[in-house]
Structures are given as structure tokens and as C-alpha cells.
Amino acid sequence: MSRSKKLKAKQVYILANGDLRLSANRVCWKEQSRVEQVLSKAIQEEGWSVIRAHDFDRKKRHGFIDSQKRGIEVFRELDPDAPLIIAECVWQYSQHILPGLLTHRGPILTLANWSGMWPGLVGMLNLNGSLTKMDISYSTIWSKNFSDSFFRKSLRQWLNEGEISHDQSHVKNITLLSLPISEVKTGRSEARKLLANKAIMGVFDEGCMGMHNAIIPDELLNRTGVFKERLSQSALYAAMREVRDEEAEAV
């Protein structure tokens, strides 16, 4: 049973989902801590106060959620109706927090630093894809220094309205696109062949990096004539060790 305490008006959670690997979390924690301080300042300047959703772990020396078990424990303590910001400066394993996000009723904002050094942006995009796949509503934003006008305006809108309205004028409805007749015929012909003859797709440890978004449901994939053969990376490595150098060099 949830032991959550209701947040007051104009209070918002900041949550940091992390990697499964201790070394990655430790390396990225310094940048995560810096970004959270800058982000908290920006939020406070909008008249809101920040509540960190979970504590820093002194033994592990980082403040990331680093397992699905830990994620479930954290969400048990949170107000399910409160606004929640997921701030990322590290590659993150989405399954750590998807169970909690599935039943969280408050507005969700995914946020990352724009950096060529820290993997927060790609981690956030992994999470975004997973949330979209699970049909969980969220807004998203990123910034290099969290002081630019676009970020501040977007943050203000999310805090006050619970969502961010991005310009989508570049997006086109796929049903309005028209392909050349010859390409349509080729596509349909190949699709019929695939459905009739079937194909096997080898998949190594799907979801192993926390990429829930990359797991294609079998019941959808099978309808196209493609079927998964689930393979193990460890089994591949073990088999590779049995290959003699002469055999490998002859390939």
C-alpha cells in the first residue's frame, strides 16, 4: 500500500533514473548533481519549490534509481497526483521507473542536458520512446544550460499547465503522402511474399539495455510474416571461444 504524502501547491518532484551499472552512475553523478542544482534554481525562479523524489545513496556514491525494485520502492512514497520531472544526465534503463510511471496520474516532464559528453539526452529519448509505447502521456524538453528563453518559457508552461506545446508544423500526416504507383506495387508484392514464406529474425537479448521501446511485440511482428528467434549474447560468446584461430582467419 502507498505511504505517499500529498505535495503542497507549487511543489514538484525531481527524479533521476539511472543506469544498471554502478560505474556509469558514479561517473555521471557529478554532472547530474550540477544540472539538478541549475534546474532547481530555474524552478524556484518560477515560484515553485523542488522536492527530490529519492535520496542520495552514500554507500553507492550516487543518487540515481538503479534497479526496477528501487524504482517501485520510490514510487510507493510519491504523491501520484503531483507534477514529476525526470531529469537525465546518464544513460538510463527505462524499466526502473516504467512501473511507477504507468500509474502516476500527475503531469510528467522528461528533461535532459544537451551535451556531447554526457549521455542524458539519448537516455531521455529511450525513456520517451518507452513512454510512448506504453501510451503514457508526457512532455519533454532539453537544454544546454537551462537558462535560454525557449527552455524557460517551456518550463513555465509545463509548471502552470501540465504540458508543453511544441511547434509541430513540420509534421505531416502519413495518410496524405502519395507514393509512386510502381513503388506501391513493389512494396505490396514483397509484403505478400514475406507473409506467405515467413522469415526468422535473430534477436540478441532484447531489452537488455533498458530499451523497452525497442521490444517489438510478437503479436504485431508476426502479422507481417516475421518471427523472432531469441538469442543469447553470452551463448554467442561461449560459442565463439570454441572457434579455432585458423577457422576464423579462413573466413
Rank of each mutant, 00 (worst) to 15 (best):
M1T: 07
K6L: 10
K6S: 12
A9T: 10
V12Q: 01
D19M: 02
V27H: 12
C28K: 09
E31W: 02
V35L: 08
V35T: 09
E36M: 12
Q37D: 11
S40Q: 14
E46K: 14
G47P: 04
G47R: 04
S49I: 05
A53N: 06
D55Q: 14
K59L: 13
F64K: 08
E73C: 01
R76V: 02
I86Y: 02
W91G: 07
Q92I: 07
Q95F: 08
H96F: 03
I97T: 12
L102Q: 13
H104Y: 06
P107T: 01
W118Q: 08
P119R: 05
N126D: 05
K133T: 07
K133V: 03
I136P: 05
Y138I: 01
F150E: 14
F150I: 12
F151I: 02
N160Y: 01
G162V: 00
G162R: 00
D167C: 02
N173S: 13
N173F: 09
L177G: 04
S182P: 00
E183M: 08
R192N: 07
K193G: 00
K193Y: 08
I200H: 09
M201C: 10
V203Y: 04
F204K: 04
G210H: 01
H212R: 12
E219D: 13
E229G: 07
E229Y: 07
E229D: 09
S234I: 11
V243Q: 08
E246D: 12
V251I: 15
V251M: 10
